[in-house]
Design a protein around this nucleic acid. Structure first.
Lengths: 219, 219
DNA sequence: TTATAAAGAACGGACGTTCATTTTCTAGTT
DNA sequence: AACTAGAAAATGAACGTCCGTTCTTTATAA
C-alpha cells in the first residue's frame, strides 16, 4: 500500500476521534476501551496504533482540535460584537454563548474528564489570565468607557466583562449538563435579559444607562 | 465473630468511603480499582463486598452522604447571613462560599463524575428550582427590599441573589479545580469584593447604596 | 515488486466479583 | 476462671473477562 496523503491521514483521524469522543463523554476516559473505539470507528484494534501512540494520545488530539474550534468560535463572537459591555450587545453576547454551549457541550464534558483524570492538564490554559486576555482583546472599548466616565467608579470593565462572560457560560452549562431546567425560574431568553440587565446596572452610571436606552428606542 | 453493632458498621463504611473518595476524585470512577480502594482503606478486597454490593454502590453512598454535608453547610451559611443581598453581607457570603468550596472541593469533583457517568442523576436536584428555593428561604428579606423600594426597578432579588450565588461558586471552582490561578487578575479577596460591588450596584438604587455606605462608615 | 496500511491474534497483567477458608470475638457452659 | 461452640467478619486465592499494547500476518495499490 502506498503512503496515505497527509489529508487522508487527517480524515481517518477525524473519523476515529469522532467515535472516541462520543465514547469518552459517555463513559469517561478509563471507562472507554480501545476495542470499543475501534468498533465504533469501524477500524481494527491494531490500526488505531498506526495513528496514535497511546489511548491518551487520542484524548489529547481530540481536546487540542476542540480547543481550536472553541477559540475560533469565541474569536468570531468577539469580532461580531466588538463593544460587548453595551447593554444590547451583552444580551447578544449571552445568546451567542448559549449557541456555543449548546452546539459544543461535548467540549465541556471533555474538560470535566480532564479535570477529573488529569487535573485539567490539557485545558487549564483556557482559564489562565482570563481577565487579562479579555482586557487585551477589548482594551479599546474598555478604555473608551473609562474615558467617557460613563461607568461607575471602582468598576474595572475587564473584570466586569470577564465575570459576565463566565456567568453566561455557567448558566448554560448548568442548564445543559447539570440538569437545572430553568434553574433561575425563568426561560433562557429571559435569563439572558435579566443577567444582562444586572451587569448593565452594575457597570454603567444610571444617567449613562438612561442615555443608552433613549438612543436605543430612537433607532 | 459476633455481629457488629450498627455503629461499628457505619464507622467501617466511613473509613472505606474516605479512601474510595480520595481515589475516585484522583483517577475517576473507572480509573479506580476495588483492589486500590481495599489497599487504601487497609481492608481486604473480599471484605469490601461485605459492606457494598458493587463498586457503584460505594460511589452512591459517598455522594449521598456528601450531599447531606453540603446542604447542611449551606443552611448554616444562610442562617448566618439572613440578609444576603446587603453589600457587606454579600462579601461575607462570598467568603463563606470560598471556604465551602475549598474545604469540600471533592464534592464538586464527585459531581463531575456524576455528570459524566450518570448524567448528573444523583446531584441534579441541587439545581432544580434553585431560584425558587432561595426565594422561599429569603422571601422575608426579599419582600422587604421590594417594599422599601431600595432596589432597582425590574430587578428580581431572588434571581439576582441566585446569580450572585452561582457566580461565587463558579469563581472558586475555576480557581480550585480548573487551574485558573487568579483568573480575574486580582486576588481572591479582591475578587469577592469586586463581584459583590458589581451585584450591589446591579441591585440597589444609587441613593440606597450611598445610604448603606454612610450607615456602614458610621458604625 | 514493494513499501505501507489494515487486521486481528497474542501477551501479560489488571479488572470486578465470588467463594472457600481462616480468624475473631461473644455467649453459654464447665 | 477457663473453656468451647458457633456465628459473623475478614481474608486472599481463584474465576472469567477485559484491558492497553505489541507483533505477526495479510491485503492493498502505486
Amino acid at each position: 500500500m502506498p503512503k496515505l496523503t497527509q489529508e487522508a491521514i487527517e480524515e481517518n483521524k477525524e473519523h476515529i476521534e469522532e467515535a472516541a469522543k462520543q465514547l469518552f463523554i459517555k463513559h469517561g476516559f478509563h471507562g472507554t476501551s480501545m476495542r470499543l473505539i475501534a468498533a465504533q470507528a469501524d477500524v481494527s484494534l491494531g490500526n488505531l496504533y498506526n495513528y496514535y501512540k497511546t489511548k491518551e494520545d487520542i484524548l489529547q488530539s481530540i481536546i487540542n482540535k476542540y480547543e481550536l474550534i472553541i477559540n475560533t468560535r469565541l474569536k468570531e463572537i468577539f469580532d461580531d460584537i466588538e463593544e460587548p459591555l453595551l447593554p444590547d450587545n451583552l444580551v447578544n453576547f449571552g445568546k451567542k454563548v448559549q449557541s456555543l454551549v449548546e452546539e459544543h457541550y461535548e467540549f465541556w464534558l471533555l474538560m470535566y474528564i480532564d479535570v477529573l483524570e488529569f487535573q485539567n492538564r490539557h485545558c487549564r490554559k483556557m482559564f489562565e489570565n482570563l481577565a487579562e486576555r479579555l482586557n487585551k482583546r477589548f482594551y479599546k472599548h474598555f478604555d473608551e468607557l473609562k474615558e467617557n466616565k460613563t461607568i461607575n467608579t471602582g468598576v474595572d470593565p475587564g473584570v466586569a466583562f470577564t465575570v459576565a462572560y463566565l456567568q453566561f457560560f455557567n448558566y448554560f452549562l448548568i442548564e445543559k449538563l447539570f440538569g437545572g431546567n430553568n434553574h433561575l425560574g425563568i426561560s433562557d431568553s429571559e435569563a439572558i435579559v435579566k443577567i444582562s440587565q444586572l451587569f448593565s446596572r452594575a457597570i454603567f452610571k444610571p444617567n449613562a444607562l438612561d442615555l443608552l436606552h433613549a438612543n436605543n428606542s430612537k433607532s
